[in-house]
Simulated assay, not measured.
Amino acid sequence: MALVSTTACGGGGDSDARSTAEPSPTSIYGLEDEDTGQTITPEPVPSWDEQSRDDATQAADRAMELYARPGVSQSTWAGELAPLMTAQAQQDYSYVDPVAIAATKVTGPATIVEEPSPQVVHVSVPTDVGTYTVLLIRQGQNEPWLVSKFTLPEGLN
C-alpha cells in the first residue's frame, strides 16, 4: 500500500496563498533600497543628443591615444587606459603587451559609424596603420563612455 502526501515541499501549508505584503516603500525622490533604507534616485534614460555624440568621439580619441603607445611599459599602458574601459575590457586587455600594438598615433578625428542605441556606439579612429573601431558603452545619460573593445583595422591581425 502506498501513501500519498498532499502537503507541498518546503513546509506545507496552502500552496495558493499569495503575498499580501506591501510593495517596497517609495519617497517623492525615488525608490527606497530595502537593505540600506537609502533613497535611490533613478537615472534618466539615455538619449542621443549632440553632447552625447561629442562625448563619445572624445572618449574614443582619448582611449585610442592611450592605446596606441607601443613604447610604454605594460603596467603604465594598462594603468592609464583602465579608467577609460569597462571592467570586462580591463580584464580582457590586462595582458596585452603594448609592444604588439602596430599603431603609434592617432592621425585624424574620430567619427561615429554606428549608433545601435543611446548606450552603445561604434566610433572609427584613424591611426598611422589604419582605422580602428572603438566600441563604447555607457550606463546612463550622465555616465562616461567607456571602451568595451578595440577592433583592429582590416588587414591587421
Rank of each mutant, 00 (worst) to 15 (best):
A2P: 14
S5Y: 02
S5H: 01
T6H: 09
A8D: 07
A8Q: 09
C9V: 05
C9I: 07
G12L: 08
G12Q: 08
G12R: 09
S15E: 12
D16A: 05
A17M: 03
A17T: 06
R18P: 02
R18V: 12
T20Q: 12
E22A: 03
S24C: 03
S27N: 09
S27R: 01
Y29V: 02
G30F: 00
E34L: 00
D35A: 10
T36D: 00
G37P: 00
I40S: 00
I40L: 00
P44C: 02
V45M: 08
W48E: 03
D49M: 12
E50D: 15
D54F: 13
D55E: 12
D55S: 10
Q58A: 13
A60T: 07
A60G: 13
D61I: 04
D61N: 14
R62S: 13
A63W: 04
L66N: 15
L66A: 03
R69G: 04
R69V: 13
P70M: 02
P70Q: 02
P70E: 01
G71F: 12
G71D: 14
V72T: 08
S75Y: 08
S75I: 07
W77M: 01
W77S: 04
A78V: 04
A78D: 06
E80P: 11
L81V: 01
L81D: 05
A82W: 13
A82N: 14
L84E: 13
M85H: 12
M85W: 10
A87T: 15
A87V: 13
A87I: 14
A87R: 15
Q88Y: 05
Q88R: 04
Q90S: 06
D92N: 03
D92Y: 03
Y95E: 15
V96R: 14
V96E: 03
D97F: 05
D97Y: 07
P98V: 01
P98Q: 06
P98L: 00
V99S: 10
I101D: 11
A102C: 13
A103C: 07
K105H: 03
P109V: 07
A110N: 07
T111Q: 14
V113G: 12
V113C: 07
V113S: 06
E114A: 13
E114V: 05
E115N: 04
E115Y: 04
S117T: 10
S117D: 06
Q119F: 01
V121M: 00
H122N: 15
V123Y: 07
V125R: 11
V125N: 12
P126F: 13
T127N: 11
G130K: 05
G130H: 03
T131M: 08
Y132S: 05
Y132R: 02
T133P: 01
V134Q: 14
L135P: 08
L136S: 04
L136G: 05
L136Y: 11
I137F: 09
I137Q: 11
I137T: 11
R138V: 07
Q139I: 03
Q139A: 12
Q139K: 04
Q139H: 10
G140Y: 10
G140T: 08
Q141L: 14
N142T: 04
E143V: 06
E143M: 07
W145Q: 15
L146G: 05
S148R: 13
T151D: 12
T151N: 15
L152A: 11
P153Q: 02
P153E: 06
G155W: 09
